[in-house]
Simulated assay, not measured.
Amino acid sequence: MASTATLTPQDQAAAPGPRPPAKRLSVTALVPAHNEEEGLGDTLESLLHQTDPFDEIIVVDDCSTDRTGDVARSYGVTVVRPERNRGSKAKAQNYGLPHVRTDLVLPVDADTLLAPDYVELVKAPFQEENVAIAAGCVQTRFDDTATERGRCIEYLFGFHFQRPIQNAANSPVVCSGCCSAFRTDELRRFGGFPERTIVEDMDYTWSKQIEGRRAVYVGDAVAWAADPSDLTYLRKQVWRWMAGFFQNVRIHSKDMAFHKPLLLLWILIACWDIVTAPLWYFMPFFLIFVLHQDVGTTMMWWLGFEMVLMWLPLIYAIRRRHLSWLRILRNFPFVYMNKAVNVFYAWKALLVELIGVPLKLTQGLVTYEKGRA
């Protein structure tokens, strides 16, 4: 006759059983807006139609001179307005932060649309206590102009090649500021959205990982951002992004080396790409006109390598997002115009922020300019 085993209280506690239900985390959308009456309505529509609804939506009308505040109030959301223009997105968000009463805060740019399941998906990683920040996959809303078409390809490449690899290594380089979610209390203890650099999203992403906290990329959560529609605004945006990148390199590199070396590895790879990019694009001309190599053979090998590098991630992105092949083929040539702008301002930022600032030759970039009219 079989004996009956008696479980001790310790055994009972360790025995497998149904998992406790996930804790519901409340979340507030925080929308900084300066003269955004034209596109704000579409953004608010996307925020109001989430499968997991926001508990509150707060628009920071940063002293707009148009009808931004009226548009926001017409949607029944909370509107707060500082006594003077705050001068940057981070400062506008920090003005709105004391009004947030939820577990999470999700800043959304006033020209960005969230997919209906965005909140549901981006909240999931926060069930893990060590996650401090999470963000989804950003794609372009429009591809009508040359700069928008180039950015479409840049985003598809970055968010379907670089970002997943970084996330798999637990070292995302940035959680995009247009649609990242944060733990509210932790953000407040940090002092709010960082204002010491011109790109608060990268600053906070690096700072938290250096502290031992996690940043998470949620590839299934999709947001669509409005990008610069001409070269004037592309130049402003890229200069801000590149200057901010090297500001963060200057501030965080030493701490990363000791506390987050894998993140530092990605940063060093990015710096190497910046330094060597002019050499890569100049190489065919050097081989042809200096070393007198065969034009056809040289261009075949150079273009072949370039196409393989670019198109493998793009093919994956097209299939995953169910995109039109014709659309991507049409947009592809314009990525090289954007790359030229990126290289120019990356080198400018390297010289200004990593050399000029330490030598006290310049104060670096401190004025925030939007990359869009």
Rank of each mutant, 00 (worst) to 15 (best):
Glu154Tyr: 03
Phe334Asn: 13
Phe305Ala: 14
Pro125Asp: 06
Cys152Gln: 14
Gln237Arg: 13
Asn248Cys: 12
Thr367Arg: 15
Phe344Gln: 10
Val218Asp: 08
Leu106Val: 09
Glu200Ala: 01
Asp230Arg: 10
Phe332Ile: 06
Ile267Trp: 15
Phe289Ile: 01
Gly304Ile: 05
Ser74Cys: 01
Leu262Pro: 06
Glu200Thr: 02
Glu129Gly: 07
Tyr118Leu: 03
Val295His: 10
Ser46Met: 03
Asp11Glu: 15
Lys91Tyr: 00
Arg321Leu: 09
Leu361Gly: 11
Pro107Asn: 11
Phe334Val: 05
Ala134Met: 13
Lys370Ala: 09
Arg319Ala: 09
Asp109Glu: 12
Gly158Cys: 02
Glu211Thr: 03
Leu114Asp: 08
Met1Lys: 04
Val199Pro: 02
Ser46Lys: 05
Gln166Asp: 14
Met307Lys: 11
Gln162Trp: 04
Arg319Pro: 00
Phe157Ile: 13
Ala373Glu: 12
Ser229Cys: 10
Tyr217Trp: 14
Tyr316Leu: 11
Thr43Pro: 05
Lys260Arg: 15
Lys348Phe: 07
Trp241Thr: 14
Leu187Arg: 00
Trp266Glu: 14
Val173Gly: 10
Pro18Gln: 06
Gly177Tyr: 09
Trp239Thr: 13
Thr78Asp: 04
Gly136Cys: 05
Thr205Asp: 14
Arg151Tyr: 13
Pro16Ile: 06
Ser88His: 10
Ile355Tyr: 06
Thr102Tyr: 01
Leu7Ser: 07
Val119Asn: 06
Ala134Cys: 09
Ala168Leu: 11
Gln162Pro: 00
Leu291Thr: 09
Thr362Asp: 11
Thr112Val: 15
Val31Gln: 09
Asp62Cys: 01
Tyr316Asp: 13
His160Cys: 05
Val60Arg: 02
Val138Gln: 10
Gly177Thr: 08
Pro82Cys: 05
Trp272Gln: 10
Met310Glu: 12
Ile210Arg: 04
Phe161Asn: 11
Pro333Met: 12
Phe334Glu: 12
Arg321His: 12
Val275Ser: 07
Phe54Tyr: 15
Gly304Leu: 08
Thr297Phe: 01
Gly219Phe: 00
Phe285Gly: 05
Val108Glu: 11
Ala29Ile: 04
Leu350Tyr: 14
Thr276Tyr: 09
Met299Arg: 10
Thr65Leu: 03
Asn248Phe: 00
Gly364Asn: 12
Ile165Met: 12
Glu129Trp: 00
